[in-house]
């Protein structure tokens, strides 16, 4: 077999690269903070003043986002 110039394009599946890995340990502050924000926003849009309430008996938030809660699939009063 003569050695042919190998083009770069076809790569064997074995050497498939992991395009990029973000270290969860290194980015934990940003990942954790973002997750916390997401969960809090989810909670206040969908859950608070329903099954749980951090504002006691107040219903302003619940009534304000009332239609969104129903449409997004959350149980609502």
């Amino acid at each position: 077999m003569s050695t042919m110039p190998v083009s770069a394009a076809p790569v064997s599946p074995v050497s498939a690269p992991t395009p990029l890995v973000v270290s969860a340990a290194k980015a934990k502050l940003w990942l954790g903070g973002t997750m916390l924000f997401g969960l809090l926003a989810y909670y206040f849009v969908g859950v608070d003043q329903g099954a749980f309430s951090v504002f006691g008996g107040d219903m302003h938030l619940h009534e304000f986002v009332h239609d969104a809660r129903h449409l997004l699939g959350f149980p609502c009063h």
Binding site: A41, V65, A68, L71, L72
Partner: peptide
């Protein structure tokens, strides 16, 4: 209300 709720949910997601 529904606007704030939907955009808030979208940002959360």
């Amino acid at each position: 209300g529904i606007g704030v709720g939907m955009i808030g949910f979208g940002a959360a997601m």
